[in-house]
Design a protein around this nucleic acid. Structure first.
Lengths: 191, 191
DNA sequence: AAATATCCTTAATATAGTTTAAGGGTAAAG
DNA sequence: CTTTACCCTTAAACTATATTAAGGATATTT
């Protein structure tokens, strides 16, 4: 629980009342490797804070191939925002890559925090903005640079993830096959 | 001015005081074709509502090729959120594709509206969410479907844009060259 | 209305990335 | 501690898309 409080206090200090409100609205869960927080067709019910472990959020195409949209490790958030806010069935999966511990806030509790403690309003808006910016950069990269460039940037930008994740997951994030990523790494090493 | 009020009232009705606050914080500008609202290296100063006309927001790669991230036509918003909120130099351009009329809100005025009229807070959060969802879908598509599929979805999802925009702009949005888009369209027609 | 700039198409050649297949290596689960 | 499942690599054949080049068609600007 301390982690999530520290997380918010990176932006703005919380008073005791706010800490209390947050802690009472959050549910801790232990998640096994390969367990799902969300499956395609279900409505996303929670905004999830990752206390420890690691998750991927991905879509599956017609051929059954998975495409990783985002990873979330310790001290990060994960949710299908679209499904959560509009209460529509998700097209995505959220799955644990490692055994994990999460803190979840339901949509109702999130609304409660927003309207009773405006500080959370601002905090969550900043979180959303950061996520938006991340996606925008990713999209620009996807269109304007080669797979090798994207790999280079990935390992410099997310070194903690690059070490932990199997290459097959990184390949899916970069938008290439594992075979091609293997080739990229080999070519890169030779230089 | 009526347009922007109608726009907000799609979500929630505004009272006179709110309408007044909005109208007094908004600046109308006439923009010529090819005029920029934002250029790479500048800090994005405004959240812009498009009353009439059409804009593109794009990045330019090492080779000088433009990559369209989003379009915004009548009754839509456009801004480099990252640059606006963090006050950092943008890596993007926002340029008019047609002669346009816009209503702009500065960051300061936006903050004023948020803190004095909570309804705008909710409205702008919904706008942001919608933009986020749009980007997320676009990213998933970029990785999981072929250029032909992306083109098909584009013309069914944005028919009003598909008619108006030159193919070269659509190609840049889809992430292909104009030559290849031309081929796609030809193949598609033959079926 | 003329002049200029931009846009669209076609086609040949080139390339980044995929597919298929197969063997060996590593980590998870019983 | 063994077995099963997953992961990584290599390489050859294949495919979607890029590049280059060039001519004709539309718009915009003068």
């Amino acid at each position: 629980m301390e982690n999530i409080i520290n997380h918010f206090e990176k932006y703005l200090p919380l008073n005791d009342e706010e800490k209390q409100a947050l802690m009472s609205r959050v549910t801790e869960r232990k998640i096994k490797r390969r367990q799902f927080l969300l499956q395609e067709g279900d409505v996303c019910k929670y905004f999830t804070y990752v206390q420890s472990g690691c998750f991927k959020m991905y879509g599956v195409d017609d051929k059954g191939v998975e495409h990783n949209l985002v990873f979330a490790a310790e001290d990060d958030w994960i949710s299908d925002i679209g499904s959560l806010h509009k209460e529509l069935p998700s097209k995505l999966f959220i799955e644990a890559i490692e055994p994990s511990i999460v803190l979840q806030i339901s949509k109702g509790d999130l609304w409660y925090l927003y309207s009773n403690h405006p500080k959370f309003d601002r905090n969550f808006r900043v979180i959303m903005e950061d996520k938006y910016i991340e996606l925008q950069n990713r999209l620009l990269q996807a269109f304007s640079s080669t797979a090798l460039d994207r790999y280079d940037r990935f390992i410099t930008q997310y070194p903690h993830l690059a070490n932990r994740l199997p290459n097959t997951q990184i390949a899916s994030y970069l938008g290439v096959t594992p075979e091609f990523l293997s080739k990229i790494k080999n070519d890169r090493f030779k230089k």
